[in-house]
Amino acid sequence: MTRTAEVNGITVSFDDAGIGPAFVLVHGHPFDRSMWRPQVASLTAAGYRVVTADLRGYGRSTVVPGLTTLETFARDTFALADHLGLDEVVLAGLSMGGQIAMECYRLFPERIAGLVLADTFAQGETPEGHAHRNRVADQLLAEGMAGYVAENLSKMLAAYNVEAMPDVADHVRTMMLNAPPAGAAAALRGRAERQDYQELLTNVTVPSLIVVGRDDEFTPVADAELMHRLIPGSTLAVIDNAGHLPNLEQPATFNAALHAFLEQ
Protein backbone atom coordinates (compact mmCIF):
# COMPACT_ATOMS: atom_id res chain seq x y z
CA MET A 1 0.00 0.00 0.00
CA THR A 2 1.31 3.42 -0.95
CA ARG A 3 2.20 5.62 1.98
CA THR A 4 3.22 9.25 2.30
CA ALA A 5 5.49 11.15 4.66
CA GLU A 6 6.12 14.84 5.24
CA VAL A 7 9.88 15.38 5.08
CA ASN A 8 11.97 18.48 4.39
CA GLY A 9 8.88 20.51 3.49
CA ILE A 10 7.55 18.10 0.86
CA THR A 11 5.27 15.07 0.69
CA VAL A 12 7.12 11.90 -0.29
CA SER A 13 5.19 8.96 -1.70
CA PHE A 14 6.78 5.63 -0.84
CA ASP A 15 6.36 1.89 -0.35
CA ASP A 16 7.69 0.00 2.68
CA ALA A 17 7.49 -3.78 2.30
CA GLY A 18 8.84 -6.79 4.14
CA ILE A 19 10.51 -7.42 7.47
CA GLY A 20 14.22 -7.62 8.17
CA PRO A 21 17.38 -5.60 7.51
CA ALA A 22 16.55 -2.39 5.65
CA PHE A 23 17.27 -1.99 1.94
CA VAL A 24 16.59 1.41 0.35
CA LEU A 25 16.36 1.60 -3.46
CA VAL A 26 16.71 4.96 -5.21
CA HIS A 27 15.27 5.30 -8.72
CA GLY A 28 16.79 7.05 -11.72
CA HIS A 29 15.66 9.83 -14.07
CA PRO A 30 12.99 10.17 -15.35
CA PHE A 31 11.40 7.23 -13.57
CA ASP A 32 9.62 6.49 -10.29
CA ARG A 33 9.73 3.89 -7.56
CA SER A 34 7.86 1.34 -9.70
CA MET A 35 11.11 0.67 -11.58
CA TRP A 36 12.17 -1.46 -8.58
CA ARG A 37 9.19 -3.86 -8.54
CA PRO A 38 11.20 -6.98 -9.48
CA GLN A 39 13.77 -6.21 -6.79
CA VAL A 40 11.18 -5.46 -4.10
CA ALA A 41 9.53 -8.84 -4.70
CA SER A 42 12.84 -10.70 -4.66
CA LEU A 43 14.36 -8.93 -1.65
CA THR A 44 11.27 -9.11 0.56
CA ALA A 45 11.02 -12.83 -0.20
CA ALA A 46 14.62 -13.17 0.98
CA GLY A 47 13.92 -11.51 4.33
CA TYR A 48 14.62 -7.83 3.75
CA ARG A 49 12.59 -4.74 4.52
CA VAL A 50 12.59 -2.76 1.27
CA VAL A 51 11.82 0.96 1.02
CA THR A 52 11.25 2.59 -2.37
CA ALA A 53 10.26 6.24 -2.68
CA ASP A 54 9.41 8.62 -5.48
CA LEU A 55 12.09 11.31 -5.45
CA ARG A 56 10.89 14.89 -5.13
CA GLY A 57 9.69 16.03 -8.54
CA TYR A 58 8.88 12.48 -9.70
CA GLY A 59 6.01 10.04 -9.40
CA ARG A 60 3.54 11.11 -6.74
CA SER A 61 5.94 13.11 -4.59
CA THR A 62 5.85 16.90 -4.45
CA VAL A 63 7.09 18.67 -7.57
CA VAL A 64 9.55 21.42 -6.71
CA PRO A 65 10.52 23.46 -9.79
CA GLY A 66 13.84 25.20 -10.30
CA LEU A 67 17.00 23.26 -9.44
CA THR A 68 17.21 20.17 -7.22
CA THR A 69 20.71 19.16 -6.17
CA LEU A 70 21.91 15.65 -5.44
CA GLU A 71 22.42 16.80 -1.85
CA THR A 72 18.72 17.67 -1.58
CA PHE A 73 17.75 14.22 -2.90
CA ALA A 74 20.19 12.59 -0.47
CA ARG A 75 18.85 14.53 2.52
CA ASP A 76 15.29 13.61 1.50
CA THR A 77 16.31 9.95 1.35
CA PHE A 78 17.64 9.91 4.90
CA ALA A 79 14.87 12.14 6.22
CA LEU A 80 12.52 9.38 5.11
CA ALA A 81 14.80 6.82 6.77
CA ASP A 82 14.54 8.89 9.97
CA HIS A 83 10.75 8.98 9.62
CA LEU A 84 10.73 5.17 9.36
CA GLY A 85 13.18 4.70 12.23
CA LEU A 86 15.91 3.18 10.05
CA ASP A 87 19.33 3.75 11.60
CA GLU A 88 21.35 1.78 9.07
CA VAL A 89 20.47 0.67 5.54
CA VAL A 90 21.87 -1.06 2.50
CA LEU A 91 21.53 1.62 -0.17
CA ALA A 92 21.12 1.01 -3.89
CA GLY A 93 20.72 3.51 -6.70
CA LEU A 94 20.55 3.31 -10.47
CA SER A 95 21.81 6.04 -12.83
CA MET A 96 20.94 9.38 -11.16
CA GLY A 97 19.92 7.25 -8.18
CA GLY A 98 23.47 5.92 -8.07
CA GLN A 99 24.83 9.44 -7.89
CA ILE A 100 22.34 10.19 -5.13
CA ALA A 101 23.65 7.09 -3.33
CA MET A 102 27.22 8.40 -3.65
CA GLU A 103 26.08 11.74 -2.24
CA CYS A 104 24.38 9.87 0.61
CA TYR A 105 27.69 8.15 1.34
CA ARG A 106 29.39 11.56 1.43
CA LEU A 107 26.83 12.89 3.91
CA PHE A 108 25.80 9.83 5.95
CA PRO A 109 28.54 7.18 5.71
CA GLU A 110 27.89 5.90 9.23
CA ARG A 111 24.31 4.97 8.27
CA ILE A 112 25.14 2.92 5.18
CA ALA A 113 25.87 -0.77 5.70
CA GLY A 114 26.31 -1.61 2.03
CA LEU A 115 26.29 0.19 -1.31
CA VAL A 116 24.95 -0.86 -4.70
CA LEU A 117 25.76 1.41 -7.65
CA ALA A 118 23.96 0.40 -10.84
CA ASP A 119 24.45 1.91 -14.29
CA THR A 120 25.90 5.13 -12.97
CA PHE A 121 29.21 7.01 -13.02
CA ALA A 122 31.37 8.91 -10.58
CA GLN A 123 33.00 11.56 -12.76
CA GLY A 124 32.07 15.21 -12.35
CA GLU A 125 30.21 17.15 -14.99
CA THR A 126 31.98 18.44 -18.09
CA PRO A 127 31.24 21.88 -19.59
CA GLU A 128 29.55 20.09 -22.49
CA GLY A 129 27.48 17.97 -20.12
CA HIS A 130 26.50 21.03 -18.09
CA ALA A 131 25.22 22.77 -21.19
CA HIS A 132 23.45 19.66 -22.45
CA ARG A 133 21.57 18.98 -19.20
CA ASN A 134 20.37 22.56 -19.00
CA ARG A 135 19.35 22.50 -22.66
CA VAL A 136 17.34 19.30 -22.12
CA ALA A 137 15.75 20.85 -19.01
CA ASP A 138 14.64 23.82 -21.12
CA GLN A 139 13.23 21.40 -23.70
CA LEU A 140 11.24 19.45 -21.10
CA LEU A 141 9.71 22.63 -19.70
CA ALA A 142 8.81 23.91 -23.15
CA GLU A 143 7.63 20.71 -24.80
CA GLY A 144 6.84 18.14 -22.08
CA MET A 145 8.16 14.59 -21.94
CA ALA A 146 6.95 13.03 -25.20
CA GLY A 147 9.84 14.11 -27.41
CA TYR A 148 12.39 13.13 -24.78
CA VAL A 149 10.80 9.70 -24.47
CA ALA A 150 10.79 9.13 -28.22
CA GLU A 151 14.45 10.10 -28.41
CA ASN A 152 15.71 8.12 -25.41
CA LEU A 153 13.62 4.97 -24.92
CA SER A 154 15.92 2.90 -27.13
CA LYS A 155 18.87 4.06 -24.98
CA MET A 156 17.21 3.45 -21.64
CA LEU A 157 16.66 -0.15 -22.69
CA ALA A 158 19.03 -1.81 -25.09
CA ALA A 159 17.48 -1.07 -28.48
CA TYR A 160 16.94 -4.77 -29.17
CA ASN A 161 14.95 -5.12 -25.94
CA VAL A 162 12.43 -2.43 -26.88
CA GLU A 163 10.99 -4.87 -29.42
CA ALA A 164 11.85 -8.11 -27.61
CA MET A 165 10.31 -7.01 -24.29
CA PRO A 166 7.16 -5.02 -25.09
CA ASP A 167 5.82 -5.14 -21.52
CA VAL A 168 9.09 -3.81 -20.10
CA ALA A 169 9.30 -1.15 -22.81
CA ASP A 170 5.73 -0.10 -22.06
CA HIS A 171 6.48 0.20 -18.33
CA VAL A 172 9.57 2.32 -18.99
CA ARG A 173 7.75 4.47 -21.54
CA THR A 174 4.88 5.04 -19.11
CA MET A 175 7.18 6.06 -16.26
CA MET A 176 8.97 8.52 -18.53
CA LEU A 177 5.79 10.01 -19.96
CA ASN A 178 4.34 10.40 -16.47
CA ALA A 179 7.38 12.20 -15.08
CA PRO A 180 6.46 15.81 -14.22
CA PRO A 181 8.50 18.00 -16.60
CA ALA A 182 9.24 20.60 -13.91
CA GLY A 183 10.59 17.96 -11.54
CA ALA A 184 12.67 16.23 -14.21
CA ALA A 185 14.07 19.57 -15.38
CA ALA A 186 14.99 20.58 -11.82
CA ALA A 187 16.87 17.31 -11.35
CA LEU A 188 18.75 17.76 -14.62
CA ARG A 189 19.83 21.25 -13.61
CA GLY A 190 20.95 19.93 -10.24
CA ARG A 191 22.97 17.08 -11.76
CA ALA A 192 24.70 19.60 -14.00
CA GLU A 193 26.14 21.13 -10.80
CA ARG A 194 27.26 17.85 -9.19
CA GLN A 195 30.71 17.22 -7.83
CA ASP A 196 33.18 14.53 -8.81
CA TYR A 197 32.84 11.45 -6.60
CA GLN A 198 35.97 9.57 -7.64
CA GLU A 199 38.03 10.51 -4.57
CA LEU A 200 35.08 9.76 -2.28
CA LEU A 201 34.81 6.24 -3.69
CA THR A 202 38.42 5.48 -2.74
CA ASN A 203 37.36 5.99 0.91
CA VAL A 204 34.30 3.71 0.84
CA THR A 205 34.67 1.12 3.62
CA VAL A 206 31.39 -0.83 3.30
CA PRO A 207 30.72 -3.81 1.03
CA SER A 208 29.94 -2.46 -2.44
CA LEU A 209 28.44 -3.90 -5.60
CA ILE A 210 28.68 -2.25 -8.99
CA VAL A 211 26.24 -3.43 -11.65
CA VAL A 212 25.97 -2.44 -15.31
CA GLY A 213 24.19 -3.64 -18.41
CA ARG A 214 26.73 -4.78 -20.97
CA ASP A 215 25.10 -2.66 -23.69
CA ASP A 216 24.45 0.45 -21.59
CA GLU A 217 24.95 3.52 -23.82
CA PHE A 218 24.51 6.16 -21.12
CA THR A 219 26.92 4.69 -18.56
CA PRO A 220 29.07 2.13 -20.38
CA VAL A 221 30.93 -0.76 -18.80
CA ALA A 222 34.10 1.35 -18.64
CA ASP A 223 32.41 3.67 -16.12
CA ALA A 224 31.50 0.69 -13.95
CA GLU A 225 35.03 -0.70 -14.21
CA LEU A 226 36.40 2.66 -13.04
CA MET A 227 34.18 2.64 -9.94
CA HIS A 228 35.17 -0.98 -9.30
CA ARG A 229 38.83 0.05 -9.32
CA LEU A 230 38.18 3.01 -7.04
CA ILE A 231 36.14 1.25 -4.32
CA PRO A 232 38.33 -1.08 -2.25
CA GLY A 233 37.13 -4.67 -2.33
CA SER A 234 34.10 -3.94 -4.49
CA THR A 235 32.31 -6.50 -6.66
CA LEU A 236 31.49 -5.89 -10.34
CA ALA A 237 28.59 -7.57 -12.14
CA VAL A 238 28.12 -7.01 -15.88
CA ILE A 239 24.65 -8.06 -17.03
CA ASP A 240 24.43 -9.49 -20.55
CA ASN A 241 21.54 -8.66 -22.89
CA ALA A 242 20.76 -5.41 -21.08
CA GLY A 243 21.21 -1.68 -21.50
CA HIS A 244 20.75 1.09 -18.93
CA LEU A 245 18.03 -0.73 -16.94
CA PRO A 246 19.29 -4.27 -16.32
CA ASN A 247 17.09 -4.53 -13.23
CA LEU A 248 14.07 -4.51 -15.58
CA GLU A 249 15.63 -6.01 -18.71
CA GLN A 250 17.21 -9.00 -16.93
CA PRO A 251 15.66 -8.97 -13.45
CA ALA A 252 16.55 -12.57 -12.57
CA THR A 253 20.24 -12.00 -13.33
CA PHE A 254 20.25 -8.61 -11.60
CA ASN A 255 18.55 -10.06 -8.52
CA ALA A 256 20.98 -12.98 -8.44
CA ALA A 257 23.86 -10.48 -8.34
CA LEU A 258 22.16 -8.65 -5.47
CA HIS A 259 21.63 -11.83 -3.47
CA ALA A 260 25.18 -13.06 -4.06
CA PHE A 261 26.44 -9.71 -2.80
CA LEU A 262 24.21 -9.75 0.28
CA GLU A 263 25.31 -13.28 1.17
CA GLN A 264 29.01 -12.44 1.15
Rank of each mutant, 00 (worst) to 15 (best):
I112A: 08
A41C: 09
D82L: 05
A131F: 05
T120F: 05
G59R: 03
E71R: 15
V149S: 09
G47A: 14
G98Y: 01
L84F: 11
R60C: 11
D32I: 07
D54V: 07
D76C: 13
T72P: 01
G124K: 06
P65V: 06
M96Y: 01
A81D: 03
G129Y: 11
V116K: 05
Y148M: 11
R106H: 14
Y148S: 11
E143T: 15
E71F: 03
V63S: 04
G47D: 12
L107T: 10
G66Q: 11
A79R: 01
F121M: 10
R133M: 10
G124H: 14
E103P: 03
S61Q: 04
E110D: 15
R56S: 08
G59N: 04
S34I: 05
T69H: 05
V136T: 15
Y58H: 15
R60N: 11
G129C: 10
L107P: 04
H27Q: 12
C104P: 00
D138V: 00
S42Y: 10
P38S: 09
A118P: 06
P127G: 11
H130A: 10
L91T: 10
T72S: 10
Q139P: 00
H29T: 14
E103S: 07
Q99T: 02
F78S: 05
Q139D: 13
Q39E: 10
G93P: 02
P127S: 02
T72K: 07
L70V: 03
V26M: 02
E128C: 00
R33V: 02
V40R: 07
L70T: 11
R111K: 11
A122G: 08
L115M: 15
A122R: 07
A113T: 15
E71W: 11
D82M: 12
G114A: 14
L115V: 10
G124T: 14
